Amino acid sequence: MNNLLPITIVASLLLGGCGGGGGGGGGGSSSSTSGNASALIGSWVTPCNDSSDGTSSKSEITYSSSEIQALHFDYSDLSCVTKSSTETVIGKYVVGNDVTTSSGVIATEIDFFAESINGESISEDIGYTIFYIDSGKLYLGDHANDAVDGTSPSKRPIDVDFNDYQLRR
């Protein structure tokens, strides 16, 4: 199984991103949050992400105190109307230490442990990233290359991807 699959679905931004358009971030406004697992609790949704092949996708992610459920939807149109498939990932997450990113914001380490995909148990698949919440937007780590692909703690991203995000529902 591809180690990035759970991160891609759960985090909704790795390898091409399913998040919203750019904009945002990096300023550390008064509503930014780091280091607080309770800030994640609740539901988050990615804006519709259209693709050059005429399809689109979006995700809905729900965090409880230590568990995560991610629903990833693929659509056969560009506006997220005609659903073609759904993938469900269930797992756990652990929030780690605060880190200062290369862009200067304080983000927080997070590890995702996928336990099942579409109801089928998998051997635990782990992804390592960071998160940063600012003004109701959840940003995750920038997995820009193999050196920071999130497949091990030493390959955890060192910066936040402000081009992709999830919106608090």
Rank of each mutant, 00 (worst) to 15 (best):
N3Q: 07
N3K: 10
L4Q: 02
L5K: 07
L5H: 00
P6N: 08
T8Y: 00
T8L: 10
V10C: 00
A11Y: 05
A11F: 01
S12F: 05
S12K: 02
C18N: 07
C18V: 01
G19E: 13
G19M: 06
G19A: 14
G21L: 04
G22D: 12
G22Q: 11
G23F: 13
G24R: 13
G24N: 15
G24D: 09
G25Y: 04
G26H: 09
G26R: 08
G27A: 08
S30P: 04
S30M: 05
S31G: 10
S32M: 14
T33A: 14
T33L: 14
S34A: 15
S34Y: 11
A37V: 05
S38M: 10
A39N: 04
A39C: 12
A39H: 01
L40I: 00
L40H: 00
L40K: 09
G42W: 13
S43K: 12
S43L: 06
W44D: 06
V45A: 11
V45I: 10
T46K: 08
T46D: 01
P47C: 03
P47S: 14
N49Q: 10
N49A: 11
N49G: 05
D50Q: 07
S51R: 14
S52V: 00
G54S: 13
G54A: 13
T55A: 14
T55V: 06
T55F: 02
S56G: 07
I61P: 04
I61Q: 03
I61M: 00
T62D: 04
T62C: 03
Y63L: 03
S64C: 13
S65L: 14
S65V: 15
E67C: 09
E67G: 12
Q69G: 01
F73D: 07
F73S: 09
D74A: 14
D74Q: 10
Y75L: 13
Y75D: 03
S76E: 10
S76Q: 15
D77I: 07
L78G: 12
S79Q: 11
C80T: 08
V81P: 05
K83M: 13
K83E: 15
S85E: 09
T86D: 03
T86A: 03
T88M: 08
T88A: 03
V89M: 03
V89T: 04
V89S: 06
I90L: 15
K92Q: 03
K92F: 07
Y93M: 10
Y93P: 06
Y93A: 08
V94P: 12
V95C: 15
G96W: 12
V99P: 07
T100L: 12
T100P: 10
S102C: 10
S103G: 15
